[in-house]
Amino acid sequence: MTYVVTEACVKCKYTDCVDVCPVDCFCEGPNFLVIDPDECIDCTLCVAECPVEAIYAEDDVPDDQQEFIAINAELSKQWKPIIERKDALSDAEEWAKVKEKRHLLER
């Protein structure tokens, strides 16, 4: 099993999760993070660190977020790993409360 970043991360891109990841399994896109399922060791550390509760165990991903399992797998092969915490996007606090924003995901 792996962990999956879901829609809540879109346009926020908090990187608290990156800071605690012992294997550097996060990859960074323009306005979203993903977890490389081949690198994730299922340690659960990232889940508690995400301020927008965007990270789920693969078996626990909500039904309306299931497409993010494939999105994480796909984009983790295209995007570069992120190994250090960075500032969130400048308007992340505003976007943190928005529920439907998957259409805003930039690839």
Results as ranks from 00 to 15, higher is better:
M1W: 11
M1Q: 14
Y3A: 11
V4D: 11
T6H: 08
E7P: 14
A8C: 07
V10K: 06
K11A: 04
K11D: 15
K11I: 00
K11T: 00
K13F: 07
Y14T: 07
T15F: 03
T15D: 01
D16M: 05
D16H: 03
C17G: 10
C17M: 10
V18D: 03
V18H: 05
V20Q: 08
C21G: 02
P22G: 09
P22V: 09
V23K: 09
D24K: 03
C25D: 06
C27S: 11
C27G: 00
E28A: 06
P30C: 03
L33P: 08
V34F: 04
V34C: 11
V34R: 02
D36T: 08
D36W: 08
P37N: 04
P37G: 07
D38T: 09
E39W: 05
E39M: 08
C40G: 08
C40D: 08
I41C: 11
D42C: 04
C43I: 01
T44M: 11
V47S: 06
V47G: 11
P51W: 07
P51R: 01
V52M: 00
I55D: 11
D59H: 14
D60F: 05
D60V: 12
D60P: 13
D60A: 15
V61M: 14
Q65C: 09
Q66P: 01
E67D: 12
E67I: 06
F68H: 11
F68T: 09
I69W: 01
A70W: 05
W79C: 00
W79T: 02
W79Y: 00
P81V: 02
I82Q: 02
D87S: 07
S90T: 07
S90D: 12
E93A: 09
E94T: 03
K97Q: 02
K97F: 03
E100S: 12
R102W: 14
R102S: 12
H103V: 09
L104H: 03
L105N: 04
E106T: 10
R107A: 05
R107Q: 15
